[in-house]
Design a protein around this nucleic acid. Sequence first.
DNA 1: AATTTTTACAAAATCGATTTAGCACAGGCA
DNA 2: TGCCTGTGCTAAATCGATTTTGTAAAAATT
Lengths: 338, 338
Amino acid sequence: MKRLTLKDVAKMAGVAPSTVSFVLNGKGKQMRIRDEVATRIMQVAEKSGYEPHRMAVNLRTGQSKTLGLIVESISGSFFASLAKTIETEAERKGYNVVYCSTENNAQKGGELIRMLGRQMVDGYLITPAPGMEKEIQQLVQQHKPVVLMDSYFPSIKTPYVLINNFDGVQQGMKHLISKGFTKIGFVMVDVKLIQIEERLRGYTTALKEHKIPVKKKYILQLQYHRQREDSLNELQAFIEANPELDAIFFSTNYLGILGLEVIARMGLKMPDDIAVLCFDDHDIFRLYPPGISVIEQPIEGIAKTAIDLLMHQLDKNSGPMKKTAVELPGKFILRGSA
Amino acid sequence: MKRLTLKDVAKMAGVAPSTVSFVLNGKGKQMRIRDEVATRIMQVAEKSGYEPHRMAVNLRTGQSKTLGLIVESISGSFFASLAKTIETEAERKGYNVVYCSTENNAQKGGELIRMLGRQMVDGYLITPAPGMEKEIQQLVQQHKPVVLMDSYFPSIKTPYVLINNFDGVQQGMKHLISKGFTKIGFVMVDVKLIQIEERLRGYTTALKEHKIPVKKKYILQLQYHRQREDSLNELQAFIEANPELDAIFFSTNYLGILGLEVIARMGLKMPDDIAVLCFDDHDIFRLYPPGISVIEQPIEGIAKTAIDLLMHQLDKNSGPMKKTAVELPGKFILRGSA
DNA sequence: AATTTTTACAAAATCGATTTAGCACAGGCA
DNA sequence: TGCCTGTGCTAAATCGATTTTGTAAAAATT
């Protein structure tokens, strides 16, 4: 039982293969195929269940109709929501998606991009990690359509979408301050990424705006590549060294989860002993008593915007882009922890 | 800057395209190409950074070197671990993977399979959902390589890998019973799937073996398609209707998470007011105080075995399979909840 | 020395589509 | 009548590889 080809359909309809191709690709009118012939071809194709051979189409047209989605971790919850939306959005535009994760391995990022290149993806959706700058730069120089999400490199001129980190942190900080908290710690990673810096800026700015002094010892920079246990200990030491802290802002959900563990270990109660606020939501935060208040990322919006930006690049006869840098507002979700 | 083709390499090396193809595909000896020529070709290909055009190769060879992974939900933690292992295992065998989720939509399952068929995947890895039986049956009849994971249909004769559900539940139940719990509830979904039935069988068998009567009212069957809130209420009603229950076994992690919410809502303390045990681990269970004891699935083992079984089918000159049904043991993880 | 066999490649067919160029035939116009 | 213009399709080139077939020159055999 062999695959049904366009040639077969042509034979069955009593016309040439090219004619079938024209009709099925909607170029019947343009090629002035009679309606009578066109409908006959359509019917034959329909009845026989003909499906074009993707690889053949790709080879001929040079388009794989496939997008590459590169994320840091495929098991993260950020990815989970992102992937779902991107997949459905892409599908509706006739594209499908292959996923790849760098798994926090800077070097692997480059390999991945090359691998996807070999597979001929038409465009890239990337959440950039520190080590990937060069590779992404190359893609852009090769005029491959690229959209960055969640972060970006100022040196690379390609569209990006992300949450307004500064504003998001501000929202959270304003809430904490309005609740009367003044000794607020800030926990971050030491990675040099725009979004991290923006979050820190949100923290310091909010404090300054309310005339609260910014104390350096209230800011903890955890190293990125580190044993889980080491990070926990460092975090605990930080809290013990500043017993007057009445609230902590965790700048990523990974840090927040570490925080929960340390706080439980130390026997502290949220929010009375210490209030907790976290950037970026996570399943756990909904459930973990008393519920962790967070700044939620507009993931669906990010995904949709990213696809739009990418499609715009893929569509050659669309003009130059108006907006290439999109910042979407985050949403403060109040739960029990702050 | 166009893509480098095999023809270009041939020209640069001063030979015919076919010669290059032979050499690069390791058929140089067989086609008696002189070592001198062969090494020259290799060097040229290497230096120029030539990469064969995947689509062209696919079209000619009829192999896409791509596997389709179909799961229920791409955001589930089961998928997350599964995908990672499968991806790396597949990559090492020269395959890549496209993911698809049915998102608990029976009808979508069929569409997905067809979509992947269009994309010409060489083989399928599927975690079967209730509505997919017919579609999978078709694939098998078309002699497409298929491996099922996590569950299977007795009517379909194709390899599958899953945890030994019966034994897993037994392990957990034996622990509960040894701790002195006797009034043990069992919460399950009403889906007719092998693995669910096996888990129930593990529950009842364990009770019988210890001469503990099996009471029907201690078994709750939650409906599958249901509003989250409704399920929560039904679960709460179940616990309230059986106040003598001293432990509950949740047969899936989704149910377990619902259980945590209800238990928190009712103000019960684990494990004193009620002990909790759950089938299938989840991030939350590690963190949620006092830690939820679980039966952990050997996900990595499942993934590796599945790939092996699939590769065996893809490799035509390998004989018939010895083992087509694999059951891997689960692992009981003791935490604070039971 | 003539013929066969082997060596070492090159040429051409092929996979299944898309797309450009071409080709009969009909009608319009001078 | 002869030339031009549309109409309605077909033939053939093409995408970039793999694989079958072909073919000169060298070596071996008779």
